[in-house]
Design a protein around this nucleic acid. Structure first.
Length: 477
RNA sequence: CGGGGUGUAGCGCAGUUGGCAGCGCACCGCGUUUGGGACGCGGGGGUCGGCGGUUCAAGUCCGCCCACCCCGACCA
């Protein structure tokens, strides 16, 4: 429980982040370095995200399945770039049942390979296509530096894997799922994102093209919040996934993969959180409303509780928590639930019982400004409207924040300067050497080349050569 | 793997020239409290990271090892 104030974001952003997660009981450190335990409150948020995404996947024709955690090491080696990309971060099992294994097994860092293997068994004809499968799973990547939610050795995610008859279909799928992520991020999580294409250096190991959604965090650093890959025929060739087309010709399929992980929880924390703690989007928050009864003695209690019960029944359509703990004071509860980011707080005390009102405090507007006293009648309508306002309010706030921290530098020196406290949106010639120079000078990398460009052309911000696209540069998590 | 740092109660820390292992918070009990982080009284809780050495005596001195954290090279 929170007994002291959180460090402020300006004081020490990463301390703010770490402590907040632990105090809000989102997650805790596990005994193994770099691993975390997602606690019930954090998992409840993830479950809401899962449900919402899952529904969107089903709506776009996908089905769920489960593939194994252990993958023969040789599988990873079949796609050249894939091995090179993942080799350094593999966890490998060499002993099973007390015996050295003939072939080491890797704990999946991602499942393109096993799934490719299975697809080659399942896909024989154009009639079998497309295959649109998703799985919810955990994966392991042996990272050097870890952060709760943002980068842990083990993390939870979903990975969609699809196979198509044509390149065009696969490319459309890749972008369709990117749009699903973007829509989810903005509508549900209230996190504004940039949809774009990754540079070759930032591309997924084994992909032809990687697309991402990029979000700005409260310290202006960028977070890759979801990715969608067009894999071309790379994995189809490596795993021999072939089908007979209408003309009885053997063809390799075209595949895609796309994933969104528990890292997104970190995005929600850092996009909306303030110095009081979490600010959770109403559409995903484990509790949308917390109701706090207030009384001094049994007599007051007996008057207040019936109203609490009545409101609870009336608000049964919302995820509501009645905090009737007697061992802590209301003031403590206010702070506690603010820390935990519950979008809306309702207080019912003796004065409210008399007047037929309740107090309502919105989490996104701290202090008196966010507090109002409203009649108990039509409570469901009042609360629903307020939650909608909060949802759009925090989205707008995040949009405004991003707008205030994206710059269009006029020179390389200015680029270096703006990257200290924001993103640069600049012309880039596409040369990896220019990217590398920026990284060297500022630690910022290219985030993505937005799909929505104004067009035209300009000069590369780094080398001055002609450029036909603009890219976002930012320091990233 | 390089550079820096820290290991003492669940968490945060103090512990002097080597001499009874402590403080705050959290936790448990009782009572008073309760509209913005309540208070009093009484409790429980320790292989001082590990192993070895010096010493009558080691949290403290010496050696080795281990773990974790921060900064760099890799990343959803």
């Amino acid at each position: 429980m929170a007994e002291e104030k959180l460090p402020t974001r300006s004081e020490n952003y990463s301390e703010w982040y770490n402590q907040l997660i632990q105090r809000a009981e989102m997650a805790d450190y596990a005994p193994v370095r770099g691993c975390m335990v997602v606690r019930p409150y954090g998992w409840a948020l993830w479950e809401n995200m899962q449900q919402n995404l899952d529904k969107r996947f089903k709506e776009t024709g996908h089905v769920n399945a489960a593939f194994p955690l252990l993958i023969p090491k040789s599988f990873l080696e079949k796609e050249k770039e894939h091995v090179e990309g993942f080799a350094p971060e593999l966890a490998i099992v060499t002993i099973g049942g007390g015996q050295e294994l003939e072939e080491p097994l890797v704990i999946r860092p991602t499942s393109e390979t096993v799934i490719g293997y299975m697809y080659s068994k399942w896909i024989k004809s154009y009639r079998d296509l497309p295959v649109l499968i998703n799985q919810w799973a955990n994966v392991v990547r042996w990272e050097m530096r870890t952060r709760l939610f943002l980068r842990t050795l083990e993390f939870y995610w979903q990975e969609g894997h699809t196979a198509h008859a044509t390149q065009k279909e696969a490319e459309e799928e890749t972008l369709r799922m990117l749009d699903v992520y973007a829509d989810f991020a903005e509508k549900e999580a209230a996190v504004p994102v940039i949809r774009g294409r990754k540079s070759a250096t930032e591309r997924f190991a084994g992909a032809k093209e990687t697309y991402s959604i990029e979000a700005m965090m409260g310290d202006t650093r960028a977070l890759q919040a979801g990715t969608s890959h067009f894999l071309g025929q790379n994995f189809a060739k490596a795993f021999d996934i072939q089908y007979l087309d209408l003309n009885n010709q053997l063809q390799h399929v075209w595949t895609t993969s796309w994933g969104l992980s528990t890292r997104f929880v970190g995005a929600i924390i850092m996009a909306h959180g303030d110095d009081q703690g979490l600010v959770l989007p109403p559409r995903l928050a484990p509790y949308q409303v917390v109701l706090i009864p207030i009384y001094k003695n049994d007599e007051e209690r007996s008057k207040v509780m019936p109203v609490v019960e009545k409101l609870k029944a009336e608000l049964s359509g919302f995820r509501l928590k009645v905090d009737d703990r007697s061992e802590v004071t209301p003031g403590f509860k206010f702070n506690d639930w603010e820390l935990r980011g519950v979008p809306l707080r309702i207080e019912v005390g003796p004065k409210d019982v008399e007047k037929g009102t309740f107090a309502m405090a919105r989490r996104d507007i701290p202090g008196r400004d966010g507090k109002s006293f409203v009649p108990q009648v039509n409570a469901a309508r009042t609360v629903g409207d307020m939650l909608d306002q909060i949802q759009t309010g925090i989205f707008q706030k995040a949009v405004d924040f991003r707008k205030a921290h994206v710059f269009d530098p006029k020179s390389y020196d200015e680029l270096k300067e703006v990257l200290q406290g924001g993103w640069a949106y600049s012309w880039w010639c596409g040369d990896a050497a220019c990217e590398a120079k920026v990284k060297e000078d500022t630690k910022a990398t290219t985030r993505n080349i937005p799909l929505d460009q104004e067009g035209g052309s300009g000069k590369c911000i780094v080398c001055g050569k002609p450029a036909s696209e603009k890219v976002y540069f930012a320091r990233a998590y």
